[in-house]
Amino acid sequence: MHEFRVTVGPASFRLLSQWARPLDQMRALYADYPTPEIVDYTVRLEATSLLRRFIRPSAAINGDYMLPDAAPLPADQGLLGLEMGMNLQMALGWRRQMILHASAVERDGKALIMTGESGSGKSTLSALLGINGWRFMGDEFALIDPASGEAVPYPRLISLKNEAIAAMQESAQEAKFGPLMKGTPKGDIRHMVPPREAIAKMTERAKPVLLLFPRFGHEGAIRDMPPSETFMRLTQASTNYVALGEAGFEAMTKFVQDVPARAVDYRSGEEAMELVEKLWEELS
């Protein structure tokens, strides 16, 4: 087995693979991240059968936490498999912070959290803001510390999908990108390495002051969201709310009471960034 270790924010991973190539790709993309001595999770990329390692290879994602019915991926999507495996360990196993399925950026020590379903544009928006005056904190999970209410950065590789790939390549020409993977279960995917500052400051927390529910493809609009609706949506967007028990309840309640929430509709990245800047100015 080939091995690569990496620390992303507060979590550390050991990645094992029967193929060298996905780990070489990870090593190149995660070159600026720290290497941990002790790891929280192990993710294994294994051939679905010994023969398949050589004939039309197909990779199964295994690890400390697994979804039994996760479909194997073609081996040339091994990088995606490893990223999915890392996400799975966090979603199912992480207990130190409350996990929100959300992206996050920071400015002046304050965090903007953006949550929404796949396709809402929260990932692309965090990447765009991350190259336009904000510090990128994460595109997939916002980790909220139950004791302090602070957002803990988790700046893994930014996962760009479909149209967002060309858009980000145009906007962030100096950024480092991974291989283009076509025809994955989520369409075309290409990973982007977060800006250098996001990696260097990945232990610097920030206090959440605004929560957005972005929605791509609708005419520009902003709507206030009451705490009760926010609570309901965020419990659905959290992968470990139930597992955290009383600490999760207290953290979530405090979050929705302290952090104003808005639903934001937008039709383009530019429009979204304008709406974000407008809201940010109003609140500060």
């Binding site: 009451p226 705490p227 009760s228 609570f231 139930v242 009383e246 309840f249 309640t253 009471q257």
Partner: peptide, 22 residues
């Protein structure tokens, strides 16, 4: 029970079951 009023709703967390009721 832990009870937290939230605008039009009230959250009730039941310690015994770990269930949140709205």
């Amino acid at each position: 029970l832990i009870t937290r009023p939230l605008d039009a709703m009230t959250l009730i967390y039941q310690r015994r079951s770990g269930i949140t009721h709205m």
